[in-house]
Write a protein that binds this DNA or RNA. Structure first.
Lengths: 144, 144
DNA sequence: TAACTTGTAAGTTTAATTGTTACAGGTGTA
DNA sequence: TACACCTGTAACAATTAAACTTACAAGTTA
């Protein structure tokens, strides 16, 4: 299993807007060119990032712009915005444990809390990572 | 995205063996009945758990037995044993960032370490959770 | 108004997971 | 040794989810 590429694409998109917004007009076609996917995938992503307050999108020629300082945008914000992990949680619980079995009847209750702990540990780590750091590394790597 | 149900099925299987092995012969058919899946799925799982040193499997009538104390078996051991996350890692990186773009060229290097940090945080939490705790909860819930 | 853009619907392709049938061969008991 | 039962595994079908594509209505700015 893997977390959807929507997450890494979203990180790429935000980094790209941060890197280019003062130099040129950033459109979905331009972003798609950098990421290497169809522009429609970008256009499906942008409203999610806009609704999360990370960037603004204009249908005119002005393009995409950041609305928040990237030191205030974490991996967790992006992960929530693009909804990589749905309500069912990170772990996919098998559907029908047998209620007539003492273990089948209780396994859900006995594991759910622990699975949530694991998911929360992952999310807490995501909260410590900012997009500003990513863009800083992109800038640094381009200077070398 | 979600982590394969193989993981929660494996936890269920181990808990079941722990709960029943002193009472009755535990076979793949019995385990499949408790989990609610086809016996072949269980039979595909058992060799993985056996190779990880968690249990032993007999083709005769003696059934499946644990080979290690469950206080020494963690979620991480199970997760490694059933190979939920392959070499590519937890995050699915989009395949072709444009090398002609300063961001596309460097985004991989700028994010890989951070993505590994997130995955490692999840795995470290898994190392703190034992199957003994799960079985203890199953037993407790059946007494109530 | 013209040129360009986003938002979104609808449908196709691709890949991964899950489920199934079938059977060869190992194991233990009588 | 023979029988009943079990696992291991191959081969394949079904299902689901992700990724990609085409097409077009509607908004925006110069």
């Amino acid at each position: 299993m893997q977390i959807t590429s929507r997450f890494t694409i979203a990180v790429h998109v935000i980094a790209c807007v941060g890197y280019f917004q003062d130099t040129r007009s950033v459109t979905s076609a331009f972003l798609a060119g950098s990421v290497g996917v169809n522009p429609v995938m970008i256009r499906n992503l942008l409203p999610l990032l806009r609704d999360a307050g990370i960037l603004s999108v204009s249908q005119g020629k002005s393009g995409v712009r950041l609305t928040r300082d990237l030191s205030d945008v974490t991996f967790y914000d992006v992960y929530r915005a693009v909804d990589c992990v749905d309500d069912r949680g990170l772990f996919h619980f098998h559907a029908q444990p047998n209620p007539a079995c003492p273990v089948g009847k209780t396994i859900h209750a006995a594991t759910d809390g622990r699975l949530s702990d694991v998911q929360r540990a992952m999310e807490n780590e995501m909260k410590t990572i900012t997009l500003a750091g990513v863009v800083a590394d992109v800038v640094r790597l381009n200077r070398q």
